[in-house]
C-alpha cells in the first residue's frame, strides 16, 4: 500500500506540471488564430486556406456534432473525423480535462447542444 502510494506520487510528479487553464483563455491562445476573435471561423490565418475553419457560432452545424466528436477532433485533429488536416491535433497542448472544458465552451459559442438547438 505504502509502496503503491509512493509510486503514484512519483508518477504524478514526473508528469508535466502545467496548471489547468480556463477554456476561454485556451480558446484565445490556440483557436482564435484560425477560428477568429469572434469564433465565427474568420481568423487572421484563413485567407490562403483551401478549407475554411468551422464557424463556432453556427448553431446548425455545431449541433450536428456530439460532445464526443468535439473532444476527438480537438484532441486528435481534423483527419480523425474525416475533416481537414488544417485542423491540427491539440492533444499534446491541452489536457483531456481542458479539452472537455473546451467542448463545453464551444456549446456556449454556438448556444446549442448536440441534436438540436
Amino acid at each position: 500500500m505504502g509502496n503503491k502510494l509512493i509510486f503514484l506520487t512519483l508518477l504524478a510528479l514526473s508528469l508535466p506540471a502545467l496548471a489547468k487553464e480556463a477554456a476561454r483563455d485556451n480558446y484565445r491562445t490556440y483557436c482564435v488564430q484560425c477560428h477568429g476573435m469572434a469564433g465565427n471561423g474568420k481568423g487572421v490565418n484563413i485567407r490562403d486556406m483551401s478549407v475554411q475553419p468551422r464557424d463556432h457560432t453556427d448553431a446548425k452545424a455545431m449541433s450536428a456534432r456530439s460532445d464526443d466528436t468535439l473532444f476527438k477532433v480537438i484532441k486528435e485533429g481534423g483527419l480523425s473525423i474525416d475533416k481537414s488536416v488544417l485542423m491540427p491535433p491539440w492533444g499534446d497542448t491541452l489536457s483531456d480535462d481542458e479539452i472537455r472544458d473546451m467542448a463545453q465552451y464551444l456549446r456556449t459559442l454556438c448556444k446549442c447542444k448536440f441534436g438540436g438547438n
Binding site: G36, K42, G43, V44
Partner: peptide, 14 residues
C-alpha cells in the same frame, strides 16, 4: 499574436 490582430471586413487582420 492575439494582441496584434483586430476584426476586419472579411476576417481578422493584423
Amino acid at each position: 499574436y492575439e494582441d496584434h490582430i483586430k476584426p476586419g471586413e472579411k476576417h481578422d487582420e493584423i
